[in-house]
């Protein structure tokens, strides 16, 4: 564990807590893409298959349980909670996210660390996470006024993987044979997808004006 990875995990945890705060307290999911939440639940379900077979540390297992529990409960909230589901605008959240799943699955079958079920599922989860934010970014472009919590949620979610890139650089230089092209390339693509959001997020923060993404 290094400071970049810990900061990354804490930032990821913070993004989940901000979203739970928004949904649980103001009972609203306005501006939140259910499709991105469903993709993230699938990411965690396919990445943490080894949660009961390979014990790495209490921290590792605890965080996996938090990410699994929160992602599935957020999906449940938006789909089934009587008040929250009312603030979900299905007509705006139209990204065909199933079109993301198939290519990621095919790529995982072709490019993986080992052709076993768990390794293919793990690679699938890495590829899927890289593109999981797309429905959310598309929805933000259509959302007139993005509320602060939603903006913070997306920012933290993008920042966590950027911190992970620093972690991979650190581990590359400090650990021998630490090379993982699958996570490195996917993590870079994932972070680059946030580039324009980060730009507009900082602009709105600097000029102290409402966050607005150009359509």
């Amino acid at each position: 564990m290094n400071i970049f990875r810990l900061a990354g995990d804490m930032t990821h945890l913070a993004s989940v807590l901000v979203l739970l705060l928004k949904i649980h307290t103001i009972k609203s999911c306005a501006g939140i893409s259910l499709k991105t939440q469903e993709l993230y639940a699938l990411v965690f379900a396919t990445r943490y298959l080894d949660i009961f077979t390979d014990f790495i540390s209490l921290y590792n297992t605890t965080m996996k349980l938090i990410f699994l529990g929160s992602s599935f409960s957020i999906v449940w909230y938006i789909r089934n909670h009587k008040i929250v589901s009312r603030s979900y605008d299905k007509s705006q959240d139209t990204f065909r996210h199933y079109f993301l799943i198939i290519p990621c699955l095919l790529l995982a079958l072709l490019v993986n660390e080992k052709f076993t079920f768990k390794e293919v599922m793990w690679a699938f989860s890495i590829y899927l996470e890289a593109v999981a934010i797309l429905p959310q970014l598309v929805l933000l472009q259509r959302t007139r006024n993005i509320d602060n919590l939603t903006g913070q949620y997306v920012f933290l979610l993008g920042a966590y993987r950027a911190l992970y890139i620093l972690n991979w650089i650190y581990r590359y230089f400090t650990e021998t044979h630490y090379v993982h092209w699958i996570t490195w390339v996917s993590g870079l693509v994932q972070t680059l997808l946030y580039a324009d959001f980060f730009y507009y997020y900082f602009e709105s923060w600097k000029n102290n004006k409402k966050l607005q993404l150009p359509a």
Binding site: H12, I56, N60, F67, E113, W122, E175
Partner: peptide, 10 residues
């Protein structure tokens, strides 16, 4: 050890 090294991240 090698296995865990490659999958010790979240």
């Amino acid at each position: 050890a090698k296995k865990q090294a490659s999958k010790d991240e979240l």
